[in-house]
Design a protein around this nucleic acid. Structure first.
Lengths: 193, 193
DNA sequence: CGCAGAAGCATAACGCTGTTATTGGCCATA
DNA sequence: TATGGCCAATAACAGCGTTATGCTTCTGCG
């Protein structure tokens, strides 16, 4: 219901009438509406993780990093409402992220951080690159692109896809990669869709 | 009320009792609660604009660009709830951005876009830099940092400030600036606070 | 096999939300 | 002064999350 009809449609009464039960069903099984929302985003994190794991590996670590970012954007576009709740926007039915939720969310950074390290090990990125810091910068960019796209703020002459490509290429270049090599790797990871 | 007590506290009844009136006041003066929220974010855009205009100019265009991003982050931290509604997160009382709102929001990109052009004109950025595309990439990064910080997602060993500094330096480097020059300009724009 | 216990759900209600029709009062103008 | 129109207070409606009550049903033990 959250994915198909938006946050406003996710009410206890609509839920229970949809499954043919009474409002008590929510409270016996979940305790409260915020707790129910928490289960929804837990499911969202699992789906996110499954998508990331399903991505095929590549011999090109920069392309693999770009591929992870592509998966990120695809998930955010596929279920924008779920994504928004998962990462702290749109307080839904009084739900607020707790520390454990955030830790689950931070797990998504592990794969790209390792990819960044492989980029450095392969000589594409500088050897002294701070993978922990870089992955946070990339995280912020990906989140910004996802949320601004959802809000309709990526407008004018450039599409969200162009912004994504530019961001990924510039990220690799700033990390030490060659401009042509970065462009080729990003293009290889993003164009087959 | 939105700024001080959060989105949940901004209800029609709380508003009117705070000013000593009845619920009708909202509807005679604004028409609906979403329309009232619209006026709130309009005010937010004006405050944002005033902050950007109040920033002193600099002879160093890269430092000026970094200063604009610093103002951006300061605004987002000063009034996070207002900021979140302005840029499309947290649907508040059924309010949704319309095209005109988004255009007001996109105006904030004008100053940094011009700063990027000055960077190119001064030889710091590549002469063929696409300022329109670059400013959107920067916009996404700034929005991501602001929102992830608000949600508590910038954790671990790095602070939001470090992520901001890294992002700005890497942005300048990818645009063509020298690494040392970029670091110096960003540091000059961000450290006096 | 039968009874006791517990677990789960439906009903109804409380206080809250945004919204509105009705009613009354105030103020400005002729 | 009288009259017109604007404005707001009151009360109500539908919907929200939540909960106390009571009934039903299912489980497990003697």
């Amino acid at each position: 219901m959250l994915a198909e009809q938006g946050p406003a449609a996710l009410s206890a009464r609509r839920l229970v009438t949809a499954v043919g039960a009474s409002t008590m069903a929510v409270y016996t099984h979940f305790g409260s509406m915020p707790a129910l929302v928490r289960e929804v985003i837990r499911e969202g994190f699992e789906r996110f993780h499954a998508r990331a794991l399903a991505m095929e590996r590549s011999a090109d670590p920069v392309a693999e990093l770009a591929g992870l970012c592509r998966v990120y954007q695809e998930f955010a576009r596929a279920e924008p409402e779920v994504y928004a709740v998962m990462f702290g926007d749109s307080v839904l039915a009084g739900f607020e992220l707790d520390e454990e939720d955030r830790k689950m969310g931070a797990v998504v950074l592990r794969a790209p951080r390792d990819a960044i390290r492989r980029c450095a090990a392969a000589g594409r990125f500088r050897a002294d690159a701070d993978a922990d810091l870089l992955v946070r910068q990339l995280f912020a960019s990906m989140h910004g692109i996802a949320q601004l796209t959802r809000a309709g703020y990526i407008m004018g002459d450039h599409t969200p896809h162009q912004v994504l490509v530019g961001t990924l290429v510039d990220f690799a270049v700033a990390a030490g990669d060659g401009a042509d090599a970065a462009r080729a790797s990003v293009a290889a990871a993003l164009t087959d869709a």
